[in-house]
């Protein structure tokens, strides 16, 4: 029987985007290293992780949601709420071993509730999570409008605990322990998406929800599950962020959800769902981090970071479209 052979140069949107993003990351690093003396040191790389660990966690959670074709703009508020509420409870004298699990559960439940509303009542994810965003940000202010410092010994230990070693070129390289939390989340997420039925169902739902349903996949569990996971990641990001700042403040991280989304997109995730990887999202976070670093070295206004990210985002969206269009043409 005659069958169409597959295209010889098979184009996988995710792979190509990830490849371009990875290349871009390396090129930017090398460019930075060639211009600035200290940029080439290993500490620059480690600091990228130190400074962006919480964002990696949030971006990983966001990737789950985006893969199903959804969106969640409540994560920054959830993150801020986690910080404020943790600080509040710690101030009241609760131990960290109680506070941290509690805020993680709250984050997960907030995500779950949003996912439940989105799936059961068929409401646009944007609207539900917009409400979630206002609610959580509002709850922050209800607890406290001023920054609450964290003096808990566990938090302090977690904030300061690090590997550090002297460099032969002078200076010290540091890698904080909490970075390993972010890397562990990344690894687990990668494993879940690649090697579990739930993970593959996430891709299937994003690829075609109706097909996934007809194939007998549990669409409800997937759709609610990804928002719950995202809520958990946002809360965990909040915990990491409070290690980083040792304070909880209601106006922290306004607009962070968009950083997470843009990281995922730069890393090759399609907003229409079904395509993307968490590794890509991490690369996206690092690219934004490296731009921030260069902007700092160059002594520019930090808004230049946003301008550059905007340009890169445009570039990646265009690339993805071009690849998709070419693939369609080839098929026809």
């Amino acid at each position: 029987m005659k069958t169409k052979t597959p295209l010889k140069t098979r184009v996988k949107i995710s792979n190509i985007s990830l490849l371009i993003a990875g290349t871009m990351l390396v090129v930017m690093y090398l460019a930075g290293a060639s211009v600035y003396d200290r940029f080439g040191q290993v500490s620059t790389v480690l600091n990228l992780f130190n400074d962006n660990a919480y964002l990696i966690v949030v971006a990983v959670g966001m990737t789950f949601v985006l893969l199903t074709g959804g969106i969640d703009i409540s994560v920054a508020s959830t993150l801020a709420f986690t910080g404020v509420f943790s600080a509040f409870l710690l101030e009241k004298g609760l131990p960290a071993v109680v506070v941290i699990p509690l805020v993680l559960v709250i984050g997960t439940l907030v995500g779950y509730a949003q996912g439940y509303a989105i799936h059961t009542f068929q409401i646009a994810p944007f609207l539900v999570t917009l409400a979630g965003q206002f609610l959580m940000r509002g709850m922050c202010a209800v607890i406290s409008t001023v920054s609450i410092p964290i003096n808990d010994p566990f938090f302090k230990a977690a904030a300061l605990g690090k590997f550090s070693w002297k460099l032969s070129t002078g200076g010290t390289a540091k890698l904080y322990y909490y970075v390993f939390v972010a890397l562990a989340v990344l690894l687990i997420a990668w494993y879940v998406l690649r090697f579990t039925r739930f993970g593959r169902a996430v891709y299937a739902v994003g690829s075609s929800e109706q097909s996934a349903q007809y194939m007998g996949l549990n669409v409800k569990r997937v759709k609610i599950g990804v928002y719950a996971i995202n809520g958990f990641c946002a809360a965990l990001g909040g915990v990491l962020f409070s290690f980083y700042t040792l304070a909880g403040y209601s106006l922290q991280n306004m607009g962070l959800e968009l950083d997470a989304i843009s990281s995922a997109v730069i890393g090759g995730t399609l907003l229409t769902g079904g395509v993307g990887t968490v590794i890509g999202s991490m690369v996206g976070v690092l690219i934004q981090g490296i731009i921030q670093t260069i902007v700092t070295y160059q002594n520019l206004n930090t808004w230049w970071t946003k301008v550059t990210v905007a340009a890169i985002l445009c570039f990646f969206i265009l690339i993805q479209r071009v690849i998709a269009i070419r693939a369609e043409r080839k098929k026809a």
Binding site: R200, Y203, A204, G206, S207, S208, Q210, S211, A212, Y214, M215, G274, V275
Partner: peptide
Amino acid sequence: NLCPHLSVAE
């Protein structure tokens, strides 16, 4: 009714 982004085997 299949998922276009997944592999044939999947």
